[in-house]
Computed example of a mutant assay.
Amino acid sequence: MGEHPYRMYVGTLSFDLLLGDVRSLKEKRSVVRPIIAELQRKYAVSAAEVGEQDLYRRATLGVAAVSGDAGHLTDILDRCERLVAARPEVELLAVRRRFHGEHDD
């Protein structure tokens, strides 16, 4: 097969979060859901809690975005990372970024 007539880039972020004064899964949801909703609303990304669902004070959030422009995608991921890092109710312990370009398998 030849070159595709389009370019597609997929970027993902995985955030490992420590939550503040949270004593139940219900309280945890009240912290995590607004962050996910803001990411989706501001940047039109897919976002979800993807790990640590059974722990009150830890959360893993996943974010994914698709673009035809690598620079635009990098900018979106940077903005998402800054948004989560700036939230006072969580501490960002780690973030992992993956970037898939058109020549990746």
Rank of each mutant, 00 (worst) to 15 (best):
M1I: 06
M1E: 10
M1P: 08
M1K: 12
M1A: 09
G2H: 08
G2T: 08
G2S: 10
P5G: 15
P5V: 15
Y6V: 13
Y6D: 08
Y6F: 15
R7I: 08
R7S: 12
R7Y: 15
M8T: 12
M8L: 15
Y9C: 01
V10K: 00
G11V: 07
G11I: 02
G11T: 03
G11D: 05
T12Q: 15
T12W: 01
T12N: 15
S14N: 11
S14F: 01
D16T: 05
D16L: 08
L17F: 12
L19K: 12
G20A: 07
D21C: 13
D21M: 10
V22F: 02
S24W: 02
E27T: 04
K28N: 04
K28D: 04
K28R: 04
K28F: 01
V31Q: 12
V32K: 13
R33Q: 14
R33K: 14
I35S: 01
I35R: 02
I35P: 02
I36H: 04
A37S: 11
Q40K: 15
R41P: 07
Y43H: 13
Y43K: 07
Y43M: 09
V45S: 01
V45T: 01
S46D: 10
A47R: 01
A47Q: 00
A47Y: 00
A48P: 14
E49A: 06
E49G: 12
V50C: 14
V50I: 15
V50T: 14
V50W: 15
G51E: 08
G51W: 02
G51S: 05
E52K: 08
Q53N: 10
Q53M: 12
D54Y: 08
R58H: 07
T60P: 06
T60S: 10
L61Y: 13
G62K: 08
G62F: 03
V63L: 06
V63E: 02
V66A: 04
G68F: 08
A70Q: 10
G71F: 00
G71W: 00
H72E: 14
L73P: 00
T74S: 14
I76W: 02
D78T: 07
C80R: 01
C80V: 02
R82P: 01
L83T: 00
V84H: 03
V84W: 05
A85C: 03
A85G: 15
A85W: 03
R87G: 15
P88A: 03
P88F: 08
P88D: 03
E89Q: 14
V90N: 06
E91M: 05
E91T: 10
L92V: 05
A94Q: 12
A94K: 11
A94H: 13
V95L: 06
R96Q: 14
R97A: 02
R98P: 02
F99R: 03
H100D: 00
H100T: 10
G101E: 11
D104I: 00
